[in-house]
Amino acid sequence: MLHACDLEEGRCYAYCPRTPTDLEQLRQALYDPKDLTPELGPFKGLYVTRAADESTRSSAQHGGTVTALVKLALEEGLLDTAVLTEESERFLPQGVSVSDPLGVVRASKSKFVTSPNVAAFNEAAKGGFEKIGVVATPCQALALAKMRLKPEPAKDNHIDKLSLVVGLFCGWALSWRDLARLLKGKADEDSIVGMDIPPSKYECMEVYTTNGTITIPLEEVLPSVKEGCQYCFDMTAEFSDLSVGSARVPEGWDAAKGWNQVIVRSRAGQELLDLARSKGVLEFRDLPEGNLEKLKTASMNKKKFCVAALVKKSGSSENLLYLDPQDPVLSRFIN
């Protein structure tokens, strides 16, 4: 906390993704109850896509789907600004509000450190934008969902200006300071052009530099994961309109890198994806067999680890700290 707080439930407390949260209430209130699944949250469909525009793809982490969707939403006037994440000095990301569709590409590629995008949303809302989209990690999407459900005080409510949440699949994020420390001596920071975590069997982080790829074993990386991430139940950003992550394709990882998987969760998400299809902004390929199951398994594993970590922290299987042990999804992991 920046300053001593004397409120039991103040502004930060109300919306923090790690303060007590009734997930089921959020799911029921914000999504069509028919779409709710235990494994992936609200679910209307899973797709494998990539940006049709090759230059968008070439500057993107994988298939460029997020860049293409946000750009399209701005071009079509569905949004008047989008809160994205740009990297500034030494991997330190920051939330930026981008209104020019051509500016979206600058914010492409994954960041492995979280940025204050909810604050950037609030700034954009105060700045006069009326239709705001946010590209959010699962924790940021949860905070925004909490704001939608508990918009108080009414005088300071900007959440109605939230028009679209594009969620990002996320396993964990790194401490910015630890990441810098991790990379020090391994790669000249000016030469780094990107990073990625390949599928779990590789057990490593890849750092792409102008001099080639550096591989760092995952066991060296994991101590730098932020503590809060081990208490996260959400791999696929369940509280978004659509969620995007890396794809798995039968041809292997090198081919998969050129594609994304998209979960559509809400009507707004479906409409945007349909628009992208009809406008030819996205290319689609058939969903490989087994992809949905694999995704469900991975998602459930994260929930399982989360519950175990919370039980360990609280010392009681009846106490999940910020989550409800009676939650219909999470309760199945409590012994």
Binding site: L7, G10, R11, C12, E152, P153, K155, D156
Partner: peptide, 11 residues
Amino acid sequence: EICLGEDCGCN
């Protein structure tokens, strides 16, 4: 009108 007064989330 904008000041949240007693409802100020930062008290």
